[in-house]
């Protein structure tokens, strides 16, 4: 818990999110037959993993774009 020292709100949000994820995974588990189109969708909690990965890809692309020189000062075109 040391890494969350002074970041109690973040810690609380993470705990609640994980709790919701477990709850959703349990509900998903109760589904008799999942109607899916791709095989990967059969992985338990697949969309949680996808959501996490996708969000990180977006964050990664934005960081790369900033470093690649897209980020400029306001008066760039003046």
């Amino acid at each position: 818990m040391v890494i969350f020292k002074g970041k109690e709100k973040t810690y609380r949000s993470l705990v609640i999110s994980c709790f919701v994820l477990v709850l959703l995974a349990l509900i998903e588990f109760t589904l008799k037959e999942k109607k899916v189109h791709f095989r990967v969708e059969k992985i338990p909690s697949f969309y949680s993993i996808l959501g996490f990965i996708c969000a990180y890809i977006i964050i990664l692309i934005t960081n790369l774009a900033k470093k690649a020189g897209l980020k400029q000062k306001e008066d760039y075109y003046d």
Binding site: T10, S13, L14, S17, C18, V20, L21, L24, A25, I27, E28, L31, E41, S45, F46, Y47, S48, I49, L50, G51, F52, I53, C54, A55, Y56, I59
Partner: peptide
Amino acid sequence: IFVLQLFVGAFIAFI
């Protein structure tokens, strides 16, 4: 469930 899972996963990454 899939939609909610997607959002919660993204929420954790954002946090």
